[in-house]
Design a protein around this nucleic acid. Structure first.
Length: 508
RNA sequence: GCCGCGUUGGUCAAGGGGUUAAGACGCCUCCCUUUCACGGAGGAAUCACGGGUUCGAUUCCCGUACGUGGUACCA
């Protein structure tokens, strides 16, 4: 029998959830759903100094917005809880002890100051960052160098200690990665990583292995920044649970910014969001913009992330979540990092704005209108307007500019577009048009347009030369759907009113 | 510095010993539209470099360069 697929996303609640994080979730999720497996979220909060209030809730809010709901998590529950590592503290100690008994780990009593001293003492130009490894461990204060009695005594007296892995001296550690295929490391180049910290909390290295085992994880997908520490994890699997039980690894390529690694600073610098949703760090008050608030549809966000590092091998670029689940394969995830392109991201959003019925996102635009005090009285009319202008919107926030003149008269008109060609005959035309419009019985597009064209012919002016001024009067600027449709939509009263106002402004 | 990983147009990318090296975004031109978009038709632009292997390398191998990650009692 084949084991049920179980994957996990393991964020640390230290701040916002960025692009790369969401993509890691996505690939986990797609893989799980494709294989009828489980998607688990485990909170890796073993570093108490980096705990940030609200960060965990924020992560789950982002996942919800993205439509990536976990099957198991601290808030969704599940059979392998608790799902916060801080609540699993007692579990890790026994494994650390097991490693010591097996001779794969040891106690180390070096203080931070002593470690610092070691690093500066051994520092050379060839080796600017010395490691706590086979070459130096016998010169340090640990259970390898101290007599057993002394070790017992130190522990009994409450001396702070950590437990470190004892890396084998000459061993090639190989493993198969689903994306990178065969990867190998020389164990002598890896340091004796701390497994259990002085406060009793495990480090990531111990916790990830123990929890992946205890939670039955079959496939471990994570960012490529973890590749370098993979040999530690491989060894831990070998020592603790057996290589046969180890999940299959896949180290996902990084998402890069305009110059190198994508950072939240890039967002501010280049004007694009980096986080899934707005995030304000409660400690520093630093604000980072989110895709949601920037005006992205979650469907578009998921779609663009999926395509950043994966390609189905066909020309299809627009995918629903169901289609992604159907087509996704980890083997087709790229090896190399991808630079995030905001223009392409906007294009995805535009495609989705057109694909989804406006009703599904009208509420978001409505809230933007409310913020700007633009009155929306009639819901059906609102939907009708959104439908009419949606081709012109890349972001949901674009709807404000593209639709607000249907609800409120423009507060300033683009005079420069009109004035150079404005003259008495045009003024006269509009005065007359305005008058006749007022007595128009049937207010529909063809009546409004026919009247306009007949009058223009009568005055011997090309209708085209009059349409732009009309547009500026109604809209305020050079954009939007057909003018006569706009006139019809906003109604007689508003049309007449705006023409009069426009006449005033242009004739000054 | 050392170690890992990577390298097809400006960006995302398909392809993978013999091809006119797909497609998309962006950019440019034209058509449609007397607005802006949408749509349509075109265009410029790519296999990092150097050695091999081979009848033939963008594709395989080795170097170099560049990029990126790691080198914490952070994840």
């Amino acid at each position: 029998m084949i084991k049920k697929v179980r994957v996990r996303f393991a964020p640390s609640p230290t701040g916002g959830l960025h692009l790369g994080g969401v993509r890691t979730v996505l690939y986990n999720y797609l893989f799980a759903k494709k294989n009828q497996g489980d998607f688990i979220v485990r909170i890796e909060d073993t570093d108490q100094t980096r705990f940030v209030e609200g960060a965990e809730k924020y992560i789950f809010d982002c996942l919800k917005w993205c439509g990536l709901e976990p099957d198991e998590s601290p808030i969704h529950g599940g059979p392998c809880g608790p799902y916060r590592q801080s609540e699993r503290k007692s579990i890790y100690l026994q494994y650390a002890h097991q490693l010591i008994e097996q001779g794969n780990a040891y106690y180390a009593f070096d203080t931070p100051e002593e470690l610092e001293k070691m690093r500066s003492d051994f520092k050379t130009t060839e080796n600017p960052s010395p490691q706590y490894d086979a070459k130096v461990r016998m010169k340090m204060k640990n259970s390898l160098t101290l007599p057993a009695e002394k070790v017992k005594e130190l522990i009994a007296s409450g001396t702070r200690y950590v437990i470190r892995i004892k890396m084998p001296e000459y061993e090639t550690i190989r493993f198969h990665d689903l994306i990178h295929h065969e990867v190998s490391f020389d164990s002598s180049l890896v340091d004796d990583k701390v497994l259990l910290k002085a406060d009793g909390m495990p480090t990531y290295h111990l916790a990830v292995v123990v929890d992946d085992y205890l939670m039955g994880i079959t496939h471990a997908f994570r960012g490529e920044e973890w590749l370098s520490s993979a040999p530690v994890h491989i060894l831990l699997w070998k020592y603790l649970f057996g290589l046969g039980n180890m999940p299959q690894w896949a180290h996902l390529p990084l998402i890069l910014g305009p110059n190198g690694k994508l950072s939240k600073r890039d967002g501010a610098k280049y004007g694009f969001p980096v986080y899934a949703m707005n995030w304000t760090d409660p400690r520093t008050n630093e604000f980072t913009e989110g895709f949601k608030e920037k005006g992205f549809l979650p469907e578009a966000f998921i779609n663009l992330l999926a395509m950043l590092g994966w390609n189905g091998g066909t020309e299809q670029e627009i995918f629903t979540m169901e289609e992604l689940i159907d087509h996704f394969s980890i083997e087709r995830v790229h090896k190399s990092g991808a630079k995030f392109d905001f223009d392409k991201a906007k294009w995805f959003n535009q495609e989705w704005i057109r694909k989804i019925p406006v009703k599904e996102y009208a509420f978001f635009i409505k809230s933007l209108f409310n913020e700007k005090n633009i009155p929306v009285q009639d819901e059906a009319f609102f939907i009708q307007v959104l439908e009419l202008v949606k081709d012109r919107c890349m972001l949901l926030t674009d709807f404000v500019e593209q639709a607000q003149y249907f609800f409120t008269a423009p507060d300033k008109l683009d005079k420069d577009a009109v004035l150079p060609k404005w003259d008495a005959s045009k003024k006269e035309f509009f005065e007359l048009y305005c008058q006749t419009l007022e007595s128009l019985k049937v207010w529909d597009v063809s009546s409004i347009e026919t009247l306009f064209k007949n009058l223009a012919a009568e005055k011997n002016i090309k209708p085209g030369e009059l349409q732009l001024p009309l547009r500026i009067m109604l809209v305020g600027a050079k954009f939007g759907p057909a003018v006569f449709v706009i006139a019809q939509m906003i109604g007689k009263e508003a049309t007449v009113d705006r023409i009069k106002k426009g006449l005033n402004i242009f004739s000054q």
